[in-house]
């Protein structure tokens, strides 16, 4: 299966001298399209730093990131327009849904379509909300939605630009077990139906069976949590 993203030998250190903390320590990771992967690990193990590096938000100090086979970041230096990459090829889902507060559910998805250069964003937004079973709330503002509904809208937004890679940072932290499982299954459905690569940072061990592969981070290093499955490799 085609690689969505490949990180090679990423390292990042916060602070200097005695206060230096190594957040990423020679991390190498590949996620293929159509795969849903989990990234486990305790707080402070480097999960969020890795998500930021893979999401082209905050690059690692050293190492390389390839996106769909193209080298886009080398030793912290961007070789492409990272905002445009995020706009067109990446989707983000956060711990809190982080919907834009002054846009309705539909507009939150529609604006992502617009950023991604998709025509007919309104129709596409409606389709996605329907796909995620929140079509009835399209005119509601985020504060009027339940936590589960907000997260579904956030996933719809992440799917708006038909991303190659979806990065989800503890998306079920605010949800109960039923909704949590429902969201995880949605990711699996999205990965398998739409061919996106999905990387989910999670502490939630209740629904691990929905993932194709599990990764674990500790002290900035990454290792497989389970035996390798198709589409995902981890090298340390």
């Amino acid at each position: 299966m085609e690689d969505a993203v490949r990180a090679v030998d990423l390292s990042k250190t916060y602070g200097t001298g005695l206060a230096a903390v190594k957040a990423l320590d020679h991390v190498t990771l590949t996620i293929a399209r159509g795969t849903v992967a989990a990234l486990l690990g305790p707080s402070g193990s480097g999960k969020s730093t890795l998500i930021k590096a893979l999401g082209f938000v905050s690059p690692a100090d050293t190492g390389e990131v390839f996106f769909e086979g193209r080298l886009v970041v080398k030793h912290g230096v961007p070789l492409a327009d990272l905002a445009a990459l995020r706009r067109r090829h990446l989707g983000f889902v956060f711990q809190k849904a982080n919907l834009t507060s002054f846009l309705t559910a539909r507009e939150n998805v529609e604006i992502a379509c617009e950023f991604g250069g998709k025509s007919d964003g309104r129709r596409r937004a409606r389709e996605l909300l329907e796909y995620l079973d929140v079509a009835g709330r399209e005119h509601s503002y985020p504060e009027m939605l339940s936590g589960g509904e907000q997260q579904r809208v956030a996933i719809a937004r992440a799917l708006a630009n038909e991303p190659s890679l979806i990065l989800a940072d503890e998306p079920t932290a605010a949800l109960d077990s039923v909704r949590s499982r429902s969201v995880m299954e949605l990711f699996r459905k999205v990965a398998h139906d739409r061919g996106a690569a999905v990387l989910v940072v999670t502490h939630d061990h209740r629904a691990l069976e929905v993932f194709d592969v599990l990764y674990e981070m500790e002290d900035g290093r990454i290792r497989p949590h389970r035996p390798e499955r198709s589409g995902l490799t981890a090298e340390q």
Binding site: A83, F92, G116
Partner: peptide, 14 residues
């Protein structure tokens, strides 16, 4: 609107 704007930036808003 800082947080909203950060989210929009993350989404790649021009």
């Amino acid at each position: 609107k800082t947080h909203d704007l950060a989210v929009l930036k993350l989404m790649g808003a021009p």
